[in-house]
């Protein structure tokens, strides 16, 4: 009977499942945060107005080309293959023995960064030109305009897409088992192998994945509502106090 096996798997191996789930959350959370930061930086650079002078213009063009290549390559290849290439490539070609967790974080971050770069760019494009002009008109430069006016609005607008990336990362970190990162899938595989039972351990993993993704989407919804602020505002009837 499968049900008994499920209970058995949970009672015997719950610390392994929990550690695996913890590792999955850890990698996908940090990977999403780093990827988000990469996306923001890349978005700011790619939306910079072209400078007049030759050298600055050449540098910016060069950086833009590098960023485009980065986005296209990492969006255009599977993360499971990137994991193999980066982890074993660093060992065999560069003779660097990467820490598995560090490699996992690196892979998830730059992979997410490639997607986030496009999401942020879309977010910046969707901001009304008047917002930029008003910021320039009070004397702000590009960076000040971005940090004080544009990006706060962009971040609010791309939060749902970022949540998507986070959920995808929770699920897709399972491919990191190919470089033996002890995330949830790898742990489950170990449990399954030890017992020669496959359905029950993976069913438990399935439930754990769903709990993680569902909780994360609920939390992000809450954050979105927080960022929107209250519907109403209070009038100040005695403004002299301010």
């Amino acid at each position: 009977m499968n049900f008994e096996w499920i209970v058995k798997v949970i009672t015997n191996y719950w610390p392994m499942f929990l550690r695996g789930a913890g590792m999955t959350l850890f990698i996908s959370l940090l990977g999403t945060i780093f990827g988000f930061i990469i996306g923001l930086i890349s978005g700011v650079i790619r939306s910079m107005p072209m400078p007049e002078s030759g050298i600055k213009k050449a540098i910016l063009k060069f950086v833009n080309i590098i960023l485009s290549i980065y986005v296209e390559v990492f969006r255009g290849t599977p993360m499971i293959v990137q994991a193999m290439v980066i982890y074993y490539g660093s060992a065999q070609v560069l003779n660097i023995n990467m820490n598995r967790l560090a490699a996992a974080l690196l892979i998830v971050s730059i992979n997410t960064g490639a997607y986030m770069a496009e999401i942020v760019r879309g977010g910046i494009v969707s901001i009304d030109k008047g917002q930029f002009e008003a910021a320039y008109a009070v004397g702000m430069n590009h960076i000040q305009t971005m940090t004080n006016v544009v990006l706060p609005q962009v971040i609010r607008n791309i939060l749902p897409a970022t949540g998507n990336e986070f959920v995808i990362n929770i699920k897709d970190t399972s491919v990191l088992n190919v470089i033996s990162v002890t995330e949830l899938f790898f742990q489950t595989k170990t449990v399954a192998g030890n017992n020669f039972r496959f359905f029950e351990p993976f069913f438990v993993a399935c439930v754990l994945y769903f709990i993680m993704t569902f909780t994360v989407t609920r939390i992000l919804r809450f954050v979105e509502r927080k960022l929107d602020g209250p519907e109403n505002f209070t009038m100040i009837y005695n403004p002299m106090q301010i």
Binding site: D128, G130, E133, A134, A137, V149, Q153, R156
Partner: peptide
Amino acid sequence: LGMVFQQFNLFNNH
């Protein structure tokens, strides 16, 4: 120079 626009262009996030 202070600039006032036709479309106001107040900073939406402030």
